[in-house]
Design a binder for these strands. Structure first.
Length: 892
RNA sequence: GCGGCGGUGGCGGAACGGUAGACGCGGAGGCCUCAAAAGCCUCUGUCCGCAAGGGCGUGUGGGUUCGACUCCCACCCGCCGCACCA
């Protein structure tokens, strides 16, 4: 007989062909008799309706070929999908492509290849690779976000949001490159404020942009985190991003312009207890009133210059907290509502227009930034909270001390951001602990109509306009008569026109497509122009998980009844880099669509798993570093099973892992040994297993007869088989191997539930090692059972070789078998090794009977030879017994 | 600065408060072979010791406990988010 060598290139395509031919992983929506899932899966018995499970990995952005990160997510997801299937679930496990986006467009600009073509090529290579990896995907539901059949519904959702007032247009400051004549994303502006492409100094322009009102959902996005099984760190990131702060809105009045018509400037503060320490007032450079306040005054020139300078700073520059504080006086004052003081107004870039009201009260005694500004501009610093270490000082009464306190000269301990009793404030509040004073002052403000308790969020509305070609068109037209008009639903999709020149010039590249832009108003039939911006690609991916459920529905985005069957996603898997944006947007869409009556659930992803990065030589893989590991090359050489298994074996999947070629060879050796031993035990040699007959044609049904190869196969996972094996073979070694198999079932099952694939695979390795060790001392049935169990447990990680082995050993299709059940009796042992400790140190090990009671165990321990040596006349003062484990003698 | 995650052999990593180092890699020795590759077997934290055995060992320093990689307190280092958010 020819040398039996494990050859994944023989094995893998054969099983892939079978799964493709029989559409094994497709699952129908109705859990009825036509449901393929039911028909195929033995786990779903006719008697009881199978539970449904939706296992989803984040959809890939198709660019080039899949990289090692893709191999990792889909290996994890596929393991979970298989495990769910074999534990009685009908599993939805689809695939799609996040096909719109900037990289494809930039690539197109560089190479001249149309984004549609480069995307199509890339999708093809992803499809090919995913099939080669043997991922169990329901290909019947495949989608791509750039497909009009998909984005038609993206546009419909946009219009739903628009009609509900959740999509709106607003002027916003955007980065504008005067040379390229285009809006730039913040990421496209370098640290010096230059355009990434042409190097021109970027300007800030106020342009009308589309926003989605995600801030309406801030509170719910925050609170509902409590009800979902997500990693704590992801929830924390989302909480931080939402950034809820409690405080008060307080009104500062300016009467300088026209005393008859005072202007009220509300500010948000988390520390209303420090209001008495407010010694100046600062506005953001973008604040619409800044220029108005200085118009025609001696300050106008300076302020104008300052504002221009500030607006042109890069985000990075402006956001640097270490930077010296800069600003300019407005020459105006506002009234501090709590004490009537007139305090000077400034403009400074450390105040952000996007947060709060775009203006702040400055309390230099108790805020670091205000303090720095006060120092730089010689403004008074007043302590109004006594430090914890410092006893409350009496309120200053005489003039001299007041001046001293105001200038903060005596106080090196300022700024002090902590809590403490109030000082220098008002007789009603002085001495009151700050926490208490906070409430009292807010109440007082409320009574006086000068403020109220308020909650502020860091989260801002989502700007979705992109002045780009390769994205989903926004289905709005502008009519001279009717204004902004949504494209009627029955005219969707608004197709992305086929243009020749998609390089950005003027505005969006789409603006150049005159024929497309010029249209008629759906409302009055007059001339109108289309919106030329496209949507942020995150819009596309905020609802794709819904579409999979009902992917071929041409009448609606989905049928709510179908969603009921699958949603929410039971297990979502993806990179932690999406912890904030994608996951927040998808949650927002779900809630908004639920409010509009389209969904009856409020969270899209019940459980989330975030996988770590794969590095090489400790560094992120990149072309420039030359340390890229290509999945295609690995699979070419070792096969998909080895690659998939290794990437799961390398370490805990939620952590970063460093790729090692030697480590992978180890896994390959393991699969080889397993396969070779299985071939030997089954006696099938090189023959092709019969569950995957070559060239059977397109039979819809699997071959019905599974001719057993010799001995009747053990039904893995059913009690009687073990007993049979046990009595048939009878030997101690048989029993030991049987026990090891059940130990492995127990271990792998538990590990799978907690995503510990590395230790699960290690357990199968142990089982194989035991099979090899006891090879000559155990009967063939026991070997067959142990190896079939190993294959069965390995199937979620290395499906091809596992299917092959299982078939050789049992003639059955492993994926149709329910997950092996552990026999609790076989987990127990008659005897075990009792650990004997003296003062907590291991001194001996002795054999103890499983049923031995506490007294017997103590006795065994005391009698252990090496324990004796360590007792040595000392007195035993305490004996700790952990039955089944150890005895610890405490001696003195 | 705030938040999160992590620190265990030569390496990747295992360990419900109960035998630290499973499993794999690497290394050493052996078998097989004319030879090599592949495969198989044994050993492999460290120090002392011929051995039996013992000492030391999970970033550092304390604490709780019969017993701590694990729990508590205070630090150090590394990585990742967010960051002038009032």
């Amino acid at each position: 007989m020819a040398e039996r060598r494990y050859d994944p290139h023989q094995i893998e395509p054969r099983w892939q062909a079978l799964w493709a031919r029989e559409r094994t992983w497709e699952v129908a929506n109705e859990a009825g008799p036509d449901g393929r899932g039911d028909q195929r899966s033995a786990a779903a018995s006719d008697a009881e309706q199978a539970l449904s499970s939706y296992v989803l990995e984040m959809l890939p952005y198709p660019s080039g070929e899949p990289h090692i990160g893709h191999l990792k997510v889909y290996s994890v997801g596929d393991a979970i999908a298989h495990y769910h299937r074999r534990t009685g679930h009908r599993v939805l496990h689809p695939m799609g492509y996040d096909a719109f986006g900037l990289p494809a467009e930039n690539h197109a600009i560089k190479t001249g290849v149309h984004p549609r073509d480069s995307t199509a090529a890339s999708i093809e290579s992803f499809q090919r690779e995913f099939r080669r990896w043997g991922i169990s995907i329901d290909w019947s539901r495949e989608l791509a976000t750039h497909d009009p059949r998909y984005y038609r519904w993206t546009q419909w959702i946009f219009l739903e949001l628009f009609r509900a007032g959740l999509a709106y247009r607003k002027e916003a400051a955007v980065k504008w490159c005067p040379k390229d004549q285009t809006v730039l994303a913040n990421e496209q502006v370098d640290a010096e404020g230059r355009c990434e492409r042409c190097g021109a100094i970027v300007e800030v322009r106020q342009l009308e942009q589309w926003f989605l009102r995600i801030t309406d959902y801030a509170e719910r996005l925050l609170n509902d985190l409590d009800g979902i099984e997500w990693p704590e760190h992801v929830k924390t990131m989302q909480r931080n991003w939402i950034g809820r702060s409690e405080g008060a809105e307080v009104t500062f009045r300016c009467e300088d312009l026209d005393p008859a018509h005072p202007i009220d400037y509300p500010v948000f503060t988390t520390r209303p207890d420090t209001l008495f320490g407010a010694t100046f007032f600062v506005m953001a450079p973008e604040h619409p009133d800044v220029l108005r306040l200085v118009e025609g005054t001696e300050h106008e020139h300076e302020v104008r210059d300052y504002v221009n300078h500030a607006l042109n700073e890069s985000n990075e520059e402006r956001g640097n907290a270490e930077k010296e504080k800069t600003g300019a006086p407005l020459g105006r004052t506002v009234t501090n509502p709590v004490n009537g003081e007139q305090i000077p107004m400034y403009v400074a870039d450390y105040v952000l227009m996007e947060y709060g009201t775009g203006a702040v009260m400055a309390v230099p005694g108790h805020d670091e930034r205000d303090h720095a500004f006060a120092r730089a501009y010689g403004l008074p610093i007043r302590r109004v909270i006594a430090g914890a270490s410092e006893p409350p000082r009496p309120t200053f009464t005489d003039k001299d001390s007041q001046v001293q306190a105001d200038w903060g000269l005596t106080d090196e301990s300022l700024p002090y951001a902590g809590e403490g009793p109030l000082v220098n404030s008002h007789p009603d509040f002085d001495g009151m602990p700050s926490r208490e004073a906070l409430g009292a002052i807010v109440q007082w403000l409320d009574r006086e109509g000068k403020g109220h308790a308020s909650v502020n969020y860091r989260l801002r509305d989502w700007l979705i306009s992109r002045q780009r070609y390769w994205g989903c068109p926004i289905p709005i037209v502008y009519c001279e008569k009717c204004g902004m008009v949504p494209v009627p639903d029955d005219e969707l999709p608004v197709r992305l026109p086929d243009i020749e020149d998609y390089t950005p010039k003027g505005r969006s590249p789409l603006a150049a497509a005159e024929e497309w832009v010029n249209t008629t108003c759906p409302s009055c039939a007059g001339t109108a122009r289309r919106e030329t911006d496209t949507m942020d690609t995150f819009v596309d991916s905020s609802w794709y998980f819904l579409r999979y459920c009902d992917a071929s529905n041409e009448q609606a985005a989905w049928d709510p009844a179908v969603l009921k069957e699958w949603m929410p996603v039971d297990q979502y898997i993806g990179g932690v880099e999406h912890a904030i944006l994608h996951l927040m947007y998808a949650r927002f869409f779900t809630k908004a669509l639920a409010d509009l009556g389209h969904l009856d659930f409020h969270e899209p992803f019940k459980a989330l798993f975030t996988q770590g990065m794969v590095t090489k030589d400790g560094a992120k893989m990149s072309k420039s570093r030359g340390n890229v590991v290509s999945p295609a090359a690995i699979i070419e050489r070792y096969g998909a099973d080895t690659a998939r298994c290794y990437i799961l074996f390398i370490g805990p999947p939620d952590q970063d892992a460093d790729w090692s070629d030697e480590g992978m060879e180890g896994v390959h050796r393991f699969l080889s040994r397993l396969w070779r031993l299985a071939v030997e035990v089954s006696g099938t040699g090189e023959e092709v297993p019969h569950a995957a007959p070559p060239r059977v044609g397109t039979c819809a049904d699997p071959p019905s007869a599974h001719a057993p190869t010799g001995d009747p196969p053990h039904a893995v996972g059913h009690g009687p088989a073990h007993v049979q094996a046990r009595t048939a073979e009878g030997g101690d070694d048989d029993l030991e191997l049987l026990r090891k198999a059940h130990w492995a079932i127990d271990k792998v099952s538990g590990d799978l539930r907690r995503f510990a694939f590395n230790t699960a695979i290690a357990a199968v390795m142990e089982l194989l090692n035991e099979c090899s060790r006891l090879r000559d001392r155990t009967g063939v049935d026991t070997q067959r059972f142990a190896l079939a169990t190993a294959a069965s447990l390995l199937f979620p990680f290395a499906p091809h070789v596992a299917a092959d082995i299982y078939d050789r050993l049992t003639g059955e299709r492993v994926w149709e078998q329910s997950w092996p059940q552990v026999d609790p009796e076989l987990l127990e042992r008659d005897e075990y090794e009792l650990v004997c400790q003296v003062n907590g140190k291991l001194r001996d090990r002795v054999q103890a009977a499983a049923g031995a009671d506490t007294e017997e165990l103590k006795e065994l321990c005391r009698a252990a030879p090496n324990v004796q040596a360590h007792l040595d006349g000392k007195q035993i003062v305490k004996e700790i017994v952990v039955p089944g484990k150890l005895v610890n003698l405490v001696v003195r």
